[in-house]
């Protein structure tokens, strides 16, 4: 059976970034894949109500983000997920990249800074999409993102000492 072509066409280019975003949030590749599948289904159900004046990317990533946050809340309440169980990409894939050092620094950021950096880089959202997803003014996106970058650099440099 054919999938709804318009939705599938719009969604397909977002999937690698969606997987990365869910993976860095949920810290597990398998859970990330399930979350993306769930968001894809949820988006399909709601696609009839999608306002074409909005950004599809921001709309769909909002669905994915909300689902991931729900999963994290469930995990937190169940407290079955040990801390620091990040499932990073295999070292042989990116031997030169120090993933764990960056992740350690990320966890020291405020939730707002952590969220905007993850959405900017892992979900690859523009300022307009960030504003829509986070429900904040575009000017706030610019300043928050900048402050998040400065904070992260400070934590990374502290780790070096």
């Amino acid at each position: 059976m054919a999938a709804p072509s318009a939705y599938a066409l719009a969604l397909r280019p977002l999937l690698p970034a969606a997987a990365a975003y869910a993976r860095v949030l949920l810290r597990n590749r398998h859970d990330a894949e399930d979350a993306v599948q769930h968001a894809a289904l949820r988006g399909l159900e709601q696609f009839n109500r999608f306002d074409t004046n909005r950004s599809f990317k921001a709309w769909w990533f909002t669905i994915l983000r909300n689902h991931c946050l729900d999963l994290l809340r469930v995990r937190q309440s169940a407290r079955t997920e040990p801390l620091g169980d990040l499932d990073p990409p295999a070292p042989e894939q990116e031997p030169e990249f120090d993933w764990s050092r960056l992740e350690t620094a990320i966890t020291r950021l405020s939730p707002e800074h952590r969220e905007i950096l993850r959405l900017r880089y892992f979900a690859d959202l523009s300022y307009r999409d960030l504003a829509e997803t986070l429900q904040i003014p575009p000017g706030t996106v610019m300043s928050r993102l900048h402050l998040a970058r400065l904070a992260l650099r400070r934590f990374l440099s502290e780790d070096e000492i």
């Binding site: 059976m1 860095v24 993306v36 399909l44 990073p88």
Partner: peptide
Amino acid sequence: RAAASAQFAPAIDLARAR
């Protein structure tokens, strides 16, 4: 680089969803 290393192609079954 971090974002690129975290990306993968998830297996999404939209046909099943449909």
